[in-house]
């Protein structure tokens, strides 16, 4: 199954799946690292059904939620979190349809390991930030669980934190921090008894 087909198919079940994969504490860490303020504007890239967006809306932040999967966005909008400040758009992390310097925060949770060119995606996310804006990426550490690329259509088997730091520096981000969330992702195989157990890193940079 192609990547978008996979996400379209799992969209109605994604919230239940995600709960077993990783904890809400990943979101708490991402929001606290960004020090989000009400009435600011965020883009949530690869939003899925709104794991990060739900927290942003709860903090009074206006969100443009971007994903390649329309069924994911439908689920997100149905939940909506009672928000007038939620906007949805089908788009690609590597070709964001957002103007230069338009937003205060960009978040990408568990998105980077699905893109073709991670460094290009980070450059795009940085391009749309206002000067002083904050980019927060939470994703998987480098791992050896190859079944994730076959069963879950992952493109990258996680990342080395030093590579993420280099990509942030290459696009001119400052105040860079790449560290541990203290959380792990636990993802079972559909076809074997194997279960991936992978650290989750957080990366922050300011434009």
């Amino acid at each position: 199954m192609c990547k978008r087909g996979y996400f379209d198919e799992i969209a109605p079940r994604w919230d239940d799946m995600r709960r077993t994969y990783f904890s809400e504490r990943v979101r708490d860490r991402a929001l606290s690292e960004a020090r989000v303020l009400p009435k600011k504007l965020a883009v949530d890239v690869g939003v899925g059904t709104g794991f990060i967006t739900e927290g942003l809306i709860g903090h009074g932040v206006e969100v443009l939620a971007i994903d390649e999967s329309l069924p994911m966005l439908r689920v997100l909008r149905r939940k909506a979190f009672g928000a007038a400040g939620l906007h949805c758009c089908i788009g690609s992390a590597e070709r964001l349809p957002v103007r230069n310097g338009a937003v205060d925060y960009v978040f990408a949770n568990m998105c980077l390991h699905h893109v073709v060119h991670p460094a290009a995606a980070i450059a795009e996310m940085t391009r749309i930030l206002k000067k002083g804006g904050t980019l927060i990426i939470t994703d998987l550490d480098e791992h050896t669980f190859a079944f994730l690329t076959e069963e879950r259509t992952d493109r990258w088997m996680g990342f080395r934190r030093r590579d993420v730091r280099t990509w942030f520096a290459e696009v001119g981000l400052k105040d860079i921090m790449v560290g541990d969330t203290g959380e792990r992702a636990s993802v079972p195989s559909d076809s074997t008894d194997n279960c991936a157990d992978i650290g989750i890193f957080i990366a922050r940079g300011k434009k």
Binding site: L70, C88, C89, G91, P97
Partner: peptide, 8 residues
């Protein structure tokens, strides 16, 4: 459905 499709 109120959602723009801005994929290339």
């Amino acid at each position: 459905e109120g959602i723009p499709n801005l994929l290339p």
